[in-house]
Amino acid sequence: MEPTANPRERRHRYGMVIDLDRCTGCGACTVACSVENNVPPPPERSTERTGVVWIRVSEAQDPRPAGARSVFVPVPCQQCDDPPCEKVCPQRAVELDPKTGIVAQVAVRCLGCRYCMAACPYHARSFNWFRPEWPDGTAALLNPDVSVRQRGTVEKCSFCAGRLQAAKAKAAAAGSREIDPADYVPACVEACPSRAIVFGDLEDPSSEVARLARESESFRLLPALGTRPKVLYRSVEPWVRASLSQPEVSRG
């Protein structure tokens, strides 16, 4: 069953450009994301490898001998146009929505085999090693627009699909099938204090994100793999662009 776009609707390709020259590595995006998407706080026994995170902020070093500089790199799901995770999923729990370009991870369908985690070259997926637990009183503060995932399933960034669903419902109530772009902004974009992340529809050539994506300072992680991510990065520093395109450095 290949979902096809509905002829009455415009296609979108949501994407983002992250300006690494602006990122200070503060981690506000990670926190805002976890709150929005009901990512449970890690239990004490969890380690760096077993926690759940949808947008990880890693650090890359200047590989040249003289260079002591480093750069922070926030890595959400890269929302590939050719996602390796989708191909390996035996359950078809991963689906690239042709209407939006968003790679869906359907929690109820996932059986937890973690093939997708092995397939993802960006380490953008997390496995729920523990039953989600909420400190006293915080369960009532969960976001009702995002379901809580079970232990034993894989999860990842959905470009805050719950916000897109809400924006679509709002448009529908007003009799429209097109959302107001201002109603759909992911939590990380909203939270970033240095406005390093620009989000929008890459299909719309007049959008800010499409304009930035065309500029020569913009690049993708590991372009040689042909996954064609819709998350792009930019930096005026040539060493940043060069080293993040190499597998060794971006494996943070």
């Binding site: 979902p3 509905n6 689906e95 869906a104 669903q165």
Partner: peptide, 12 residues
């Protein structure tokens, strides 16, 4: 109604 839905239309 001639509509094909994607998983993310109906699942959260």
């Amino acid at each position: 109604a001639g509509r094909e839905s994607a998983c993310l239309d109906c699942h959260k």
